[in-house]
């Protein structure tokens, strides 16, 4: 299987504290990969580096695109180095990303995410939330919008239709004109996924999608995740604490502890790994008393 995302030597330090130490893993195209680990292991930090919210201290994150690979660290804009001034092409690229780079470019490259603590536009309607997510696909010309040209209206209608499609898939169609902040918690979580999907991603990163859901909702969520992969061709990376969900949906599991990868492999293999058991249960290396 071809890797869609390759993470190599990812290191993140806050001040002197190393949150991630040379983390490396790959996400194959079309797979469901789970990132697990005890609290404070650095899972969300990995996500924030991947989706461009943190500038990694060192390491490379490469996304295979249809037109070639893209370095997700560089497009955030890095500080200039002395050696850049010898190479005008590198310098120009670095300057460009420094001025105009940022996390939004990561999304444009095809990575979408949700957040651990749901982040919706609470005072906007559900449909508006989805339309904002399609910002890059609609007609943004000011004049076209002010005059209401046919092209503008077509683009808006198409965006509404696309939004409705995703709402249908996630079972939120009836809520289209409600305020996002008024929805029950489970619906808010699904709306956030729908919103991420509206950006048209190739890689969908879900940060604890089952947190706060009841067992039935979790069950429905795992069906949904599987469906997104099989019917919509998405690659999914998820952080999750609910092991039953992880075991059920994922093809590949990466285990983090104290900012380092301690195991990776199929769910069955990882489950047996003594190091993982130690990390989770805090057992002594030699075995219990």
């Amino acid at each position: 299987m071809t890797p869609l995302l390759t993470v190599e030597g990812l290191t993140m330090r806050f001040g002197g504290i190393a949150a991630l130490e040379r983390v490396g893993f790959t996400v194959s195209a079309g797979s469901i990969t789970a990132l697990i680990g005890p609290n404070g292991a650095g899972k969300t930090t990995v996500f924030n580096c991947l989706t461009g919210f943190y500038q990694a201290t060192a390491g490379a994150i490469t996304l295979q695109g249809p037109t070639g690979s893209l370095d997700l660290v560089a497009i955030l804009g890095q500080p200039l180095r002395g050696s850049d001034f010898l190479d005008p092409v590198t310098l120009a690229r670095r300057l460009f990303y420094k001025m105009f780079g940022g996390s939004h470019r990561v999304t444009r490259a095809g990575v979408a995410r949700t957040f651990q603590n749901v982040r919706l536009f609470k005072e906007m309607t559900v449909m508006e939330n989805l339309l904002v997510a399609q910002h890059l696909r609609v007609e943004r010309n000011l004049l076209a919008g002010l005059l209401g040209t046919p092209g503008y209206r077509r683009a808006e209608q198409a965006a509404v239709a696309r939004g409705l499609d995703w709402l249908q898939i996630l079972g939120l169609r009836d809520a289209a004109n409600r305020l996002a902040g008024e929805l029950p918690y489970g619906d808010q979580r699904r709306l956030e996924i729908a919103r991420a999907l509206c950006t048209g991603p190739r890689l969908l990163c879900l940060d604890e999608p089952a947190a706060g859901l009841n067992p039935r909702e979790t069950e429905a969520l795992s069906d949904l995740i599987l469906r997104l992969r099989t019917q919509h061709g998405l690659t999914i990376l998820l952080i999750e604490h609910d092991m039953s969900l992880v075991m059920r949906v994922s093809d590949h599991v990466v285990v983090l502890d104290h900012g380092e990868v301690i195991a990776r492999g199929t769910p069955q293999a990882v489950r047996q790994d003594p190091r993982v058991l130690t990390a989770y249960l805090g057992m002594e290396e030699e075995g219990g008393p």
Binding site: F53, F100, L136
Partner: peptide, 13 residues
């Protein structure tokens, strides 16, 4: 409403 969510949607804030 939420700047961070906006950035995660590809909007150049």
């Amino acid at each position: 409403e939420d700047e961070i969510a906006c950035r995660s949607l590809g909007i150049n804030h």
